[in-house]
Design a protein around this nucleic acid. Sequence first.
DNA 1: CTTATATATACTCATTATGAGTATATATAA
DNA 2: TTATATATACTCATAATGAGTATATATAAG
Lengths: 350, 350
Amino acid sequence: MAKTPGKSTTQQAEATMHADKAVVIGLNAAIVTVSDDQPKILVVPHEETDGASGWDALPFGPFNPVRHRTLEIGLRSWVQEQTQLELGYVEQLYTFGDRGRHSLETDAPGEHVVSVGYLALTRGYDETLKGAAWCDWYRYFPWEDWREGKPPIIDQAIVPLLREWAGRQSEAPPEELARGKRRDRMRLCFGVDDVAWDDEKALERYELLYSAGLLLEAARDGRPNARGLTGKHAPNLGRPMQFDHRRILATAMSRLRAKIKYRPVAFELMPPSFTLYELQKTVEALLGLHVHKQNFRRLVENAGLVERTGRMSTRTGGRPAEQFRFRREVLNERPAPGLKLAPSRSRANS
Amino acid sequence: MAKTPGKSTTQQAEATMHADKAVVIGLNAAIVTVSDDQPKILVVPHEETDGASGWDALPFGPFNPVRHRTLEIGLRSWVQEQTQLELGYVEQLYTFGDRGRHSLETDAPGEHVVSVGYLALTRGYDETLKGAAWCDWYRYFPWEDWREGKPPIIDQAIVPLLREWAGRQSEAPPEELARGKRRDRMRLCFGVDDVAWDDEKALERYELLYSAGLLLEAARDGRPNARGLTGKHAPNLGRPMQFDHRRILATAMSRLRAKIKYRPVAFELMPPSFTLYELQKTVEALLGLHVHKQNFRRLVENAGLVERTGRMSTRTGGRPAEQFRFRREVLNERPAPGLKLAPSRSRANS
DNA sequence: CTTATATATACTCATTATGAGTATATATAA
DNA sequence: TTATATATACTCATAATGAGTATATATAAG
């Protein structure tokens, strides 16, 4: 037996931490599926005490270090228990220290929660879900779906509000500089001027809107910039969520949109057999963009991501499409098989 | 004032978690610098109780939720206290639940540690560091540095040992299939056959070697496959580290190698003014690869990442090189400015 | 002072990847 | 039959990439 590193060292390190710093670990999951060409996430509706419409929450479970060996095992465990969903792909997103995530007011003294956010993909859609429901993720981010063209909310509400915010007096000393930076952030995030829309910037856009005080969460958390929310000018920029759950969801979106381009995760959302156009529709739903159909086929086929099944799809419309299946072997052949996509520059070819 | 989500809901959620599930949060940092064309990380040498050579540890600090609002603030705080280093770029890597990270034996009953790994970059090299020291990161991963060609350890030790492991009886039922998968993993990770070396797979390589029981950490943790380590055949595949610190370091390497290609993080490691070749050397040190000099220049200049200072470098050797500086404005101009590099296929052009 | 040598920098070129379009095939509905 | 809708194959221009040659400007050797 090889020598062990010595118990004493372990205990020494752990002894430096006292019980008063102990926290509770919470596991939050953004569980994503796609159905009817819409990405959906599993949410738990929370009613307000005053009867008002509640703020949705992501499914949440505590991590019990006694029962579960790893965080991911703990996550899978309670998701399974609570929803009977079987998760396919699971990926850790980010860990938040509690006061950074809860609003200052709702922070219970003495108890501290650190939450680990997860992205999970599942195929199962129409399961019976006690207490939870699938909700189209673009209801939380209406500015993220460009499949029908630029969402009107951007030019009608977001950009004007951000312009106003960018022009405001800033707290920091270098006045003119701060305004310029705000304007740049706006430009890069929302594709103002000649800047191209970047589907992967979902998290940055959420954070920008939060910083600018344009989200209900910002007002709830008592952000200094959240002036416009107090009066009748309060814009309704997407459905809010509890705590920082909408931020976790934005993180999940950004990660998934990026990942889909270099790892074959989209297939986790597909049935065993599918047409290439069905695959494309799923990808487009996630990206919130249209892609060039012919090039999509070329890409998928050249990359060896799929293989023909020989069966044809008896679908409505025109010529029947062939059914394909995912070629699992690519994982063992190529280094980074994914769907490197580019959005169509024109919308001529849908 | 907009309505708040309601305290009751918060407390309800937190009430589901009991004190027996409380854990302590540890923050581990892989603090990276580059000097003399070598990437170095800050380690804390730990002596064995029996006087044997110790296992290095990453700097470690507890997270105190009372004192620090966020995890990153907590990290910066104790790093500052302990090392006087000022960190530039900081990025969260991954969070490990304790039994997944500590070996089963060293697990103290009743106390549970969840550790959050961070990557941090710093320019400061020759500071006075009490108790800590800079160590070349390739000492922990000798197979990762391809700048002088393929490291001999791969063909001499790693590939033969992995081949033996891949051919072994597997525990799982589908016998032949499991062996094939092991062989595929080996091929993809270490570029056997015609597969190209992928610098970003550092973590996958570490995990493969660990699974195959070829690392001292695997033997320490009592991994079932760690046969070769017990006798005189024990290979010496890089310096081991405490707990899962070498895995955290591998994670940091993979992330940094990937990030450098689409975000201008390399400049965090450069002095304010530098020649393009110095920049290239730093990048090559991190990637463990040579890149094509002329194309590197073209890339960096076309991307608008640098601007001329006018000053020339009085270096030894040939024609003096011009000094450049990082163009911070690029962050506000382009969506994803980085150094999309490709390793030289031939080593003709250094 | 000239030449060898080392490095820096500019420029060229072939190949591939990418974005976008046209052409053709095969189904259903009028 | 014809119109229409979709699937699929093929073409083409442009950009990105990998790799090399050519030239500029320094130091060191002779």
